[in-house]
Design a protein around this nucleic acid. Sequence first.
DNA 1: ATGACGGATCTAATCCGA
Length: 266
Amino acid sequence: MTFKLITWNINSVRLRMPLIEKLIEMRDPDIICFQEIKCQNDQFPYKAFENLGYKYHAVHGQKGYHGVATVSKTPLTQIHSTDYVKMGDTRHISTCFEAGGKTINIHNFYVPAGGDEPNIEKNPKFDHKLKFIEEMKLLNANEGDTPAIIVGDLNIAPLEEDVWSHKQLLKVVSHTPIEVEGLNAIMDAGDWKDLIRQHIPTPEKVFTWWSYRSKDWKVNNRGRRLDHIWGAAELAEKLTDIEILTQARDWEKCSDHVPVIATFQF
DNA sequence: ATGACGGATCTAATCCGA
């Protein structure tokens, strides 16, 4: 069976339902993981998703900021959230689903952006981000017989080819060496595989986010790869495609992130 | 070229994103 998974930092789920509908019509995924839903649980558009065929929902939102949600055509079980760094933010939701006769665990993350200055003394948001990724080292790609997936906006672009200019971004939060080391430490500790880079190896540049603040995002193409899909080795073997839906950055009233689509053959 | 934008919020100006 073919299984399709999408992760998308939606930057307000309520505002962008028309774009979500368009994406579903285009790609017909089995599961979609959203970040920055920017609404409380009771404001989530459950009915609209049900009408589109996504009857199962795992929603962890808060007022105004952050928030993650996983929607699915097939049942979601063992739904839970972890409050990383105990800030009370809604930045993680974990669920399980069945595919190819196996139970698979999927973690949906919205890692803190980290503020402006990459200095933990001067900038508490950067300190929060580093502590958050430190705690993520406890995640394992395999727990017993259950392989896992991490998706989401990890807000770190680890490789030189994940940013428009490695040199110019070395001191910019999202691409500093300490953040990159932290992300690599999570990968090593939990035995995770970077599925986007497995399918699109360097030196090809890959971006999933472009700032709203440039007049025309395409002119200078100053993007970063902030959104990720990682998986256990046994899932990496089953990956058949990764698509970065760059065209979505041109849609009317678009998010500043584009959908990333993974296809598996189980 | 760290912002020229854009979203949510106690609808007006403020906080936040990265």
